[in-house]
Design a protein around this nucleic acid. Structure first.
Length: 808
RNA sequence: GCGGUCGUGGCGGAAUGGUAGACGCGCUAGCUUGAGGGGCUAGUGGGGAAAUAUCCCCGUGGAGGUUCAAGUCCUCUCGGCCGCACCA
């Protein structure tokens, strides 16, 4: 009864110790090998510990890393901690504990859990964004951004919560109330640090062409950047010495513009509103201010607005256009003002109908009494544009505007500059000093890092500044040379900062002189495979690309793009098909799975569940199935006494040859393509066939174990060392190869169809000629029956596969 | 509303335009014999005919189309998921 199966807790511990002792996964940097960089999105080490969702992506990269090592690559496969963040600060606020200690404890737990899953990380390159040696360079990058004019301060509205005495991040605000405590939150303009990501908008858009990413992620980024090409046109206001500029993508429809709309927030509104309308306008502005963004968009099917009493002059027609304010015009996009062309824009059409404003068609086609016509067509009622189509008319109009000095071609973006400061303690301090003479300087490189002061009382400053503002000995500085007094910037960086360049630091993690040696960066970049959750599709990836491009411009990063190939793993849902959450009670703890079934089982199960990018429900039976497969592998090679089976032979035996070569091919290709579910299914097919075979050639068993080891590394190691009788690692044993000529059996099954319907099957030699195969089909008894009384019109023969006879 | 993506057995899922349902779970049967569990072997889309071998029809959300041949390509349509959402 002994050893019908393996003891995962023993062998997993044994091999984890062995790997550690022998520095098995230390990154090699042999000049004569190719490099492969397999990267995971590093986690925020939360107090909850690892979730079964984490190992899905980690296992995928680990399989690649292990396969690439066996294929003779230098492999960089690192892990680290995105450890600044709100939960630690909130914990500190609640308990008075040091977030650094709390974070260190969480990291310990995460690391233990990750190691218990047998991932092959090179821990010599571990990164922690809260380590001053690391954030020194995060701060350094900020100073460079500042030097280049890409970091600046501006008054922008933030989420201010008076009850908590602090500013909140967007994700901390739910329906206008604070996530903690449910206190009201107000938009309040405050001075903030901004990063000019918009200066990189075009490059962030264009260079998406160069990377091998899922189309939907590229699309989300394009959408987010929201490039829109059009024109700006200046309108004069009748009888007042004022003007305003609108942005439009359809300058060609200027002749059809019958009114103008300003965003309620627009400053111009106060200047132009006539006294008779002032009351109505002010009331509308107040109402618009009160509405949340949601109400202003989603709920606002009916367009509302108020006439200001002022008129603009249409520069094309010379006619007077009433100027309205309406909240369907956003202050934050374009110029905050539009020329309305109700005949050819749905929103303007809706609004014009609501308030009985004139609708003048300037394009032929459609019926503007029924709906706005937004398609292309020849222009009418448009003077010099008449007869032209859209494209030509836009060009002609733009030229005309330029010539008359009324406007010009213009591109706008939905992308806004990056609000980079947080009024928080637990983040990288922004390395800036504001001097009493009104100047602002960054801290020179040799004085970095600017470390966070230790404090036993992290508390809100009450002013909206970060808790750092009340730590006098940290905030107040004096220039030792001039004696000038100054005050440190009390803002810290957002969590996105540290994660925007960590993939560079892994390449040269201990460099004291620079953020990383450019020569080393050249060798490893771009990242060959980057796997993480789709929730980072926009922000993290956009910010990281932005910083990378900035560092490329500084000639530090060698590539335009950081991540050549990107993949988003799906979510693992609870067994009730809902997202795992504590409150739903459907959370699976990986520690329990490892204890009961072993890490290898968890890895196999998560990879076998389905495609890596699919969201699939956890299923205990499936988990047991994965374990059963591993048990079956064990019993294939090890007998009841725990000895290697004597069916394993060095003699040549061809019974398994075809399936073996097929397996090597399919598994190699599937792993490369991240199709782990089908790769594993092929391993199962091999095992099923091997159970039926009389002999197990050692060569095939070795090859099989090499294919299995990346997914189930502990079992792979254990079986490898058992069949060889020595304790040696399978890690660097060369990956098996397949022989193209041995992928198919000599005898194959072919199908015969009549009019496309399967009517008969037959066995024949794979190499049978087209003519012979056709004859075989014609001679087939069943086929003859079906052909009875019919005339053959056509015969299609696919050699080695099928014959289709068309007859009627 | 716009963009992306996906609809295949009881379930998770496989299928370069060429045998739909690989592989796994579940289920059924046989064997392994105290039972159970476990293991091994075989079967398992639906409907029908037959004593048996076997045979027929239907089948990839729905409706059309292209093709000798469609889960796969095209058009329309319904439904799910994700993202954006009055972006001028």
């Amino acid at each position: 009864m002994e050893c019908m199966t393996f003891h995962h807790e023993e062998i997993e511990k044994k091999w984890q110790d062995y790997w550690k002792k022998n520095h098995m996964f230390k990154t090699t940097e042999d000049a004569d090998k190719e490099n492969y960089y397999a990267l995971d999105m590093f986690p925020y080490p939360s107090g909850q510990g690892l979730h079964v969702g984490h190992p899905e992506g980690y296992t995928a990269t680990d399989i690649l890393a292990r396969m690439k090592r066996a294929q003779g690559f230098n492999v960089l496969h690192p892990m680290g901690w995105d450890a600044f963040g709100l939960p630690a600060e909130q914990y500190a606020l609640d308990t008075g504990n040091d977030p650094a200690e709390f974070t260190a404890l969480n990291i310990q737990t995460f690391k233990r859990q990750i190691n218990s899953l047998g991932f092959s990380y090179d821990w010599d390159r571990e990164i922690n964004t809260t380590d001053p040696d690391y954030y020194k360079w995060t701060q350094w990058i900020f100073t460079k951004l500042y030097e280049k004019g890409l970091a600046y301060q501006a008054e922008v509205p933030v989420n201010w919560c008076p009850a908590l005495g602090t500013v909140l991040a967007n994700e901390e605000v739910i329906d206008g109330k604070s996530e903690r405590g449910g206190h009201p939150v107000y938009r309040k303009p405050m001075k903030q640090w901004m990063l000019k990501i918009t200066a990189y908008a075009d490059r962030l858009l264009d260079d998406l062409e160069e990377v091998d990413w899922p189309e939907n992620i590229k699309d989300m980024q394009r959408n987010w950047i929201g490039k829109s090409v059009g024109a700006e046109i200046t309108f004069l206001i009748k009888t007042l010495n004022e003007e305003f500029t609108v942005f439009t993508t359809r300058p060609d429809t200027l002749f059809g513009s019958t009114y103008a709309v300003l965003a309620p927030e627009s400053e111009l509104v106060q200047k132009i509103t006539i006294p008779e309308q002032k009351e109505a306008v002010d009331a509308y502005i107040e109402e618009a201010n009160r509405k949340s963004d949601l109400e202003r968009t989603d709920l606002n099917k009916n367009k509302t607005g108020v006439f200001t009493g002022a008129y603009a002059i249409n520069p094309a027609t010379g006619t007077a256009m009433p100027i309205w304010i309406a909240d369907y015009v956003l202050a934050t996009y374009g110029t905050g003002a539009i020329m309305a062309v109700p005949a050819h824009d749905e929103r303007d059409w809706d609004f014009a109908r609501q308030y009985d404003l004139p609708i003048i068609p300037v394009l032929e086609g459609g019926n503007v009494a029924e709906a706005a016509f937004t398609e292309d067509g020849p222009h009418i009622h448009s003077g010099f544009l008449d007869g032209m189509n859209k494209e030509e008319a836009i060009e002609t109009m733009n030229a005309w505007l330029e010539e008359k000095g009324l406007g010009s071609k213009k591109t706008t973006y939905r992308l806004r500059d990056w609000l980079f400061s947080r009024q928080r303690y637990w983040g990288e301090p922004i390395p800036v000093i504001h001097w009493e003479d009104g100047t602002t300087t960054t801290i020179p490189e040799e004085q970095l890092p600017l470390t966070l002061p230790k404090t036993d009382a992290i508390k809100p400053s009450g002013t909206g500044e970060s808790p750092l503002a009340v730590i006098d000995e940290w905030v107040n500085v004096e220039d030792p040379k001039t004696g000038m007094k100054g005050r440190r910037d009390t803002n810290t960086m957002p969590q996105w900062a540290g994660s925007s360049w960590y993939f560079l630091r892994y390449i040269d993690p201990h460099n004291q002189e620079q953020l990383a040696d450019p020569e080393k960066l050249k060798k490893w970049l771009p990242v060959d495979m980057y796997i993480g959750g789709a929730e980072h599709a926009v922000l993290h990836l956009l910010y990281a690309r932005f910083w990378h491009k900035f560092l490329y411009d500084l000639e530090i990063a060698p590539t335009k793009e950081p991540f050549q190939r990107l993949y988003n793993q799906g979510m693992i849902l609870g067994d009730n098909n809902e997202k795992m959450s504590k409150s739903k009670g459907n959370v699976v703890n990986p520690d329990e799975v490892v204890e009961k079934f072993g890490a290898d089982t968890l890895r196999v199960y998560e990879m076998f569940m389905g495609p890596l990018d699919a969201s699939i429900a956890w299923n205990e039976d499936g988990l047991e199935g994965a374990r059963k497969f591993l048990d079956r592998v064990w019993r294939l090679l090890i007998d009841e006494e725990g000895k290697v089976r004597d069916r394993i032979t060095k003699h040549t035996d061809e019974e398994l040859t075809v399936v073996y070569h097929q397996t090597v091919k399919k598994v190699t290709e599937d792993f490369q393509d991240l199709h782990f579910n089908t790769g594993i299914s092929q391993l199962m097919i091999f095992v099923n066939d091997a159970y039926k075979a009389k002999l197990l050639p050692l060569e095939y068993i070795e090859g099989f174990l090499k294919l299995l080891a990346p997914i189930a590394p502990h079992l792979g190691e254990e079986l490898w060392s058992r069949i060889h009788g020595v304790e040696e690692s399978i890690t660097y044993k060369p990956w098996p190869s397949f022989d193209e000529s041995k992928l198919v059996k000599d005898e194959v099954e072919v199908v015969f169809q009549v009019n496309g319907k399967l009517r008969a099957k037959a066995q024949t030699a794979r190499t049978i000629s087209k003519e012979e195969l056709e004859k075989m089909a014609m001679d087939n008894e069943k086929i003859q029956e079906y052909l009875q009384g019919k005339t053959i019109r056509k015969v299609i023969v696919v050699p080695g596969k099928l014959v289709n006879i068309v007859a009627n």
